[in-house]
């Protein structure tokens, strides 16, 4: 082995950042779509969990348990190979689909499971009396949800939503395994172009990018929570 100084060159970290950062666009796009779809399906699952139908409850809980037990990379490949194979049965040819589509499907499935729990627990944290008081002053049930339950549940759910986003972003780093050229995919391309030397520096650059992003998301949601938490102060003058 050559000596360490020659092998580890810190300038590779800084120099790779400008090359890597534009590829965050891909990361964000894939994450953004997964968030939108995942939140939507998560809401449906949450409604199923909170509703009266036992079958719907069981189904939604079963889904969440399965997804919680499946490693992202396994789900990713299951979708990547499984969806086109399944589509074949219906005469659809999906093998040439853009990899990003499979990534979005995977993380939509996963984020929906996360969001269903976030929404359920936020909803359940609001006492039933809030709804009853709202309809007792003449609000319709929809207005009661919209104006009284939702704003309060939002405050409870926000930190968990933020954590869900961070989890999604991090699990998304595995998308390179099916060939998505996001920031991790690009990093691997750079390393390959360097004949596998200076991989460590590039990985450290990647770690810095993700670390900063996670901290920013956390800070952002901390701020957001403060903005939304009207009436949450607990200065009891009692």
């Amino acid at each position: 082995m050559r000596n360490m100084e020659k092998y580890f060159d810190i300038s590779y970290i800084w120099n790779s950042l400008p090359v890597l950062l534009p590829f965050l666009k891909v990361t964000f796009m894939v994450a953004g779509l997964s968030i939108v779809f995942g939140t939507f399906f998560g809401l449906i699952l949450a409604v199923m969990k909170l509703g009266k139908s036992k079958i719907a409850q069981k189904t939604a809980n079963f889904y969440t348990t399965i997804l919680r037990c499946t490693p992202s990379i396994v789900l990713l490949f299951l979708v990547y190979y499984g969806v086109p194979a399944l589509a074949d049965n219906f005469g659809l040819y999906l093998h040439d689909l853009n990899t990003a589509v499979f990534v979005v499907i995977t993380f939509t499935l996963q984020f929906a499971a996360i969001m269903s729990e976030v929404i359920r627990s936020a909803y359940e944290s609001i006492e039933k009396g809030q709804f009853e008081a709202a309809v007792s002053v003449g609000l319709s049930p929809f207005q009661a949800y919209r104006r009284i339950i939702f704003p309060q549940a939002l405050v409870v759910g926000l930190p968990n939503f933020g954590n869900g986003l961070i989890a999604l972003l991090q699990e998304g780093s595995l998308a390179y395994t099916i060939g998505l050229i996001d920031i991790v995919g690009k990093a691997n391309l750079i390393i390959a172009a360097n004949y596998n030397t200076h991989a460590l520096e590039i990985f450290i650059a990647l770690a810095i990018v993700y670390w900063v992003l996670s901290i920013l998301i956390e800070k952002f949601f901390g701020k957001l929570e403060k903005v939304f938490s009207k009436g949450k102060q607990t200065i009891n003058t009692n």
């Binding site: 780093s173 595995l174 670390w211 996670s214």
Partner: peptide, 14 residues
């Protein structure tokens, strides 16, 4: 903060 802020795959790489 570092471990929570970075994907585990990148920790593995490093």
């Amino acid at each position: 903060s570092f471990v929570r802020g970075t994907p585990i795959i990148i920790q593995i790489f490093i």
